[in-house]
Every structure is written in structure tokens, then in C-alpha cells.
Design a protein around this nucleic acid. Structure first.
Length: 507
RNA sequence: GCGCCACUAGCUCAAUUGGCAGAGCAACUGACUCUUAAUCAGUAGGUUCGGGGUUCGAUUCCCUGGUGGCGUACCA
């Protein structure tokens, strides 16, 4: 995409962008690098580490008593010198341990190199013994050190936090400077590992389905479009993996799940990124009640592992995942808020209620879509404790099975926590005739102007015609789940590289 | 998408009504053998996001473009 009006240099110059005349700060480092390179290897091939910072903390008593030689590598975070000594905090993934360099111990030249030519941000490995300084800080007394990698750019300033933009654009600096950031993403990894372990215990099989799809489906959203050159055809990045996972159920795999990146071509805000991680799972012979039970087990186990006794602090709330979640029917929740039984009202009367509640009605908005808007407006924000909202209007859920008791509804639930939707599940529609009709109804919505209505997927219908057993399915937003567990209200806190517009001149 | 606000040294931020563009950290030179945001003395570092306009004079006011933040819309 070319912007005719784009002009170069719209942001302050990236340092070092000009190789002919490097930035003064880089130039200084390049000079030191040249001198250092005469006597040491600047980029060696490895380092034989004996302990991480965490292991040094844990095993201090043993190490200090035994005068054990340790080798500890990491990144130099600061230098505090006094003429013939130097204290250097060195960070690894787990924390920071300071090293103590003494001219008398190291000799003239090695001390000069560390004092004059080694910069904050460089990687080194120090070898020596562990001791406590007079002021009580655990310290490696360095006998020798090796250079591991030279940095030619400076680290950010150390005692003010980086701007949010900088943290996201250059996450490697956020990670380098902030232990909290490293810990946060390690926690995300542990949460996902625990989710996989859970589904393993529940005997689900992890699968992978296509990201590039000829038809997008399984959710209501606008897709990203791309092009396959040798086939000369349009492909879409998936907005969901639902229709492929159901094909696997047709094939006879009985319990499958996928942790998938989905892509939706829509707005971005603190709970939306164009690419996000979704877990979907499907189980043969299950219905949505079984899926509710599964969600309670999953959330209960996650909360237990990642919080205090199943009670999770989220913002001003304390969320309780330790007991069965509240269950409320979609229409009942609306009836309670409006004082009206919207099931028996005419379309016109429903529209009138929506207008009264300040909802802007748009072209192509069906009755059920209006009900959905009403629900979002009136009910969702108040669903703080984990709550299953059940039995939605049919039109909103073209892939869900009709309710076994009530006409016009489907067997579906959404799990709401802290005012946002965390999971969505149905008893899956497996009657191919009805599925075809629902697709056709979607087509009418599409023609009426609803850009997000689903397309008819003939290949998927063929699969259903082959026979799909009764099936329960569920989608769970992983990024939002992580936000919940780490008490964050911004999706960028849980994405290593959230989508950002490119800076000018960086494309 | 729309609305409001912001953008100044590598980083985090100041700058009175439109009147010489500053500090801390980082960098450089020097002093200092247990420091903790080390300290002390000194030096250097700027297309004030880009472009245009008003003005004797613009970081400051106006127009326009860029990026970001917040709110709002759509969505998970």
C-alpha cells in the first residue's frame, strides 16, 4: 500500500540508520569494538554456564560455603566503578546478579578492558566465587571473564519506564529492561502448557488445520484476503477453525482441539488484535451441557494453579472459579433488564425497545441481531463473576443445533467473565438439511447488507452429509484468558508483538 | 471509521504571553579498591515528527500529512 502523501522522515531519525555517518553513540561503541576486537573474540560460539541467576539465589548457602567456582553469563545492565574496582549487575532470563571486578585480581589489561571498553548492554560471562558484600548483596567475585556479544546500540534509560509504544514496537528492549515483562510472557507460556496438559488429561487430540482457506467460515467476521500465485486464486486467512475440526469429527476422530491463530479484519482496541489465539475443541457424543462442565473443570484447574485458592483478582473484582458457574438463559436475562418478554413481541416492538435503549439500528439488522445488541448493551457489562449465558436466538448462531425444547432458540452458551466474552459453545448442528437452510438464511442477510454473514460452504455440507455424530464444540479466547489470569486489561500486555502500524521509513 | 489529546537529545521528560531549546540517565575526558539510581569535576550531544502558512521572530498560532494514547463504533 503506497501513500501518495507519505513523506520521508516523519519521525525522529532512527539512530544508526545512516551507515555512512553513524550516530555518535553508535560510533563510540564501534570504536571500542574495534579496539576490543584486537584482543578478544567479540562474538564467540557459546558459553559453558554452571548456574543461572535463579540457581545462584537458590543454592547460595552451598556455593558460598564451598568456594565453588561458578560461571554465570548475562547482559550488563549498569556499571558502578571506583577507580580500581567495578560492580556490574548482570541479568539473565530469571533475574540479576552483580559481578565484582577488582584490578588486583584481574590484572592491568583485563581490568582496563572491562572498565573502558565493555558497555552497558553487552553480554559477558563471569567466572569466580560467590560472596556477600558489606551491604549484603549476593555477588560474583570475578577471577576471569569472557566476552559473549557486543551491543552497538545503547539500552534505554534505566529508571524510567519506556513509553507504551516503545515497549510494543521494540519488545526485545521491554524484555531486556523489565523482569516483570519476562515473567509475564513466561506465565503466558505456562498457562498454555497447562491448557494443553488439561486437554491431554481429558483425552483430546491436538490437531492442525489450514490457515489458508478458500472459503472462510465458522464465525461472523470480515477476513484477510490473500492470493496464491501458482494456482492464481484468492485465499482467505482463517477467521476460525470450526468447519475443519467438525470435518475431523465426521472422519471419526472423537475428541479434537486446536490452539490456532485466527485473523479478523476488524478494528483494534484493548481487547482486539487482528491476529489472536483461539482454542477450539470438539467432542463427539457431547452436547453443550457437557461443554459447560468441561469449561468449569478447565477454569477451575487454571484458577487453582495460577491464583490463590481459585479466587482470582482482576482489577477491582475478585473472581471465583472455585464453584459451579452461574447459568442464565439469554432471553431471561433480557427479560429481567427490560421487564418485557421479548420472545412474544413483534419485530417492530423489539426494534422500538432497542431504540429506547439507545441502540442505533442499521440496515440489514434482523430481529435477533437487535436482541444481541440489546444483550451486549444491557446485560454483558454486569456479568462479572463467571456466568454461562445460554440458549441464544437462532439467527445469531447458524452452526448451532436448534434447542430441544424451545422454538427459535439454539443450544448455545457463552461464558462471560469480568464483562467480556471468554468462550462460546454449542451443541453442533449436524443435520445437513437444516445446515443448508441456515446457510441460505445467512445468504439472505448477506444480500441484505450484513457484511459478516456466513457463506455457504458446499464442501463442509458434503462432509455433514456423510454423517456427523452429535457433537459439542467450544471456542475459547486464549489471549483474553491470559489477560484474566495475569490481571491485565490490555491485550498488548499478553502479545509479544501486538500489531502496530509501521513507522515511516521502516516499511 | 469517528472524536479528543500528545509527539522536543539515544531514553524519560521540562521550556512563562510567540522572544537565545533545558534537566536526569546514557555517552566522552579525568579522580576514586565493597558500589546499589555510586559519587565528584569537566565535555559533547537538537531538522523541537514531516510539509506548508501567519509573523521582525514559531517548540509555541493556523492548515496539511504521519505515528501514538484515550474514548467511541464494529468485533472475540
Amino acid at each position: 500500500m503506497t501513500d501518495k502523501n507519505a513523506q520521508p522522515g516523519n519521525r525522529s531519525e532512527e539512530i544508526g540508520a545512516d551507515l555512512e555517518s553513524p550516530h555518535r553513540l553508535i560510533e563510540a561503541r564501534l570504536e571500542k569494538m574495534a579496539e576490543l576486537g584486537k584482543s578478544v573474540e567479540l562474538y564467540p560460539y557459546g558459553y559453558d554456564r554452571t548456574h543461572t541467576s535463579a540457581q545462584l539465589q537458590d543454592q547460595e548457602a552451598k556455593l558460598a560455603a564451598g568456594e565453588v567456582k561458578i560461571r554465570y553469563p548475562g547482559r550488563i545492565m549498569a556499571k558502578r566503578g571506583t577507580g580500581k574496582t567495578l560492580f556490574v549487575p548482570i541479568s539473565d532470563e530469571w533475574g540479576t546478579v552483580q559481578a565484582y571486578f577488582r584490578k588486583d585480581d584481574l590484572g592491568e589489561e583485563p581490568f582496563r578492558l572491562i572498565q573502558k571498553l565493555v558497555d552497558i548492554g553487552d553480554w559477558i560471562g563471569v567466572e569466580g566465587t560467590l560472596f556477600r558484600t558489606r551491604t549484603g548483596e549476593m555477588t560474583v567475585k570475578v577471577e576471569k571473564y569472557v566476552f559473549l556479544a557486543k551491543a552497538i546500540r545503547p539500552l534505554p534509560e534505566k529508571y524510567h519506564d519506556m513509553s507504551l509504544e516503545n515497549k510494543c514496537r521494540r519488545r526485545y528492549l521491554d524484555l531486556a529492561m523489565n523482569q516483570e515483562c519476562r515473567d509475564r510472557f513466561k506465565l503466558r507460556s505456562e498457562i498454555i502448557t497447562e491448557i494443553r496438559a488439561f486437554f491431554g488429561r481429558e483425552e483430546f487430540m491436538e490437531v492442525e488445520t489450514p490457515v489458508l482457506q478458500t472459503l472462510y467460515g465458522g464465525a461472523t467476521a470480515r477476513p484477510f484476503k490473500t492470493h496464491h500465485n501458482s494456482l492464481d486464486m484468492t485465499l482467505f486467512l482463517r477467521i476460525a477453525d470450526e468447519l475443519y475440526l467438525k470435518r475431523l469429527i465426521v472422519g471419526g476422530l472423537e475428541k479434537v482441539y486446536e490452539i490456532a491463530k485466527d485473523f479478523r479484519n476488524e478494528g483494534m482496541d484493548r481487547t482486539h488484535n487482528p491476529e489472536f489465539t483461539m482454542l477450539e475443541c470438539y467432542a463427539a457424543y457431547w452436547d453443550y451441557h457437557d461443554m459447560m462442565d468441561l469449561m468449569e473443570r478447565l477454569m477451575g484447574q487454571l484458577a487453582e494453579k495460577f491464583s490463590d485458592g481459585g479466587k482470582l483478582k482482576y482489577g477491582e473484582h475478585e473472581l471465583d472459579f472455585g464453584k459451579p458457574f452461574a447459568r442464565v438463559r439469554f432471553m431471561d436475562a433480557l427479560a429481567e433488564k427490560t421487564g418485557l418478554d421479548l420472545m412474544v413481541l413483534s419485530d417492530e416492538e423489539v426494534a422500538k425497545v432497542a431504540k429506547k435503549e439507545g441502540i442505533t439500528l442499521k440496515k440489514g439488522m434482523g430481529r435477533d441481531k437487535i436482541l444481541d445488541e440489546l444483550f451486549s448493551e444491557l446485560v454483558e457489562p454486569e456479568l462479572i463473576q463467571p456466568t454461562f449465558v445460554m440458549d441464544h436466538p437462532k439467527e445469531l448462531s447458524p452452526l448451532a443445533k436448534a434447542h430441544r425444547e424451545t422454538d427459535g432458540l439454539v443450544e448455545r452458551f457463552e461464558l462471560f467473565v469480568a464483562g467480556f466474552e471468554l468462550a462460546n459453545s454449542f451443541s453442533e448442528l449436524n443435520d445437513p438439511r437444516e445446515q443448508r437452510q441456515r446457510f441460505l438464511a445467512q445468504k439472505e442477510l448477506l444480500d441484505a447488507g450484513d457484511e459478516e454473514a456466513q457463506q455457504l460452504d458446499e464442501d463442509f455440507l458434503q462432509a455433514l452429509e456423510q454423517g456427523m455424530p452429535p457433537t459439542g464444540g467450544l471456542g475459547l479466547g486464549i489471549d483474553r484468558l491470559v489477560m484474566l489470569l495475569i490481571d491485565s486489561n490490555n491485550i498488548r500486555d499478553v502479545l509479544l508483538f501486538p500489531h502496530m502500524r509501521p513507522e515511516q521509513g521502516q516499511v
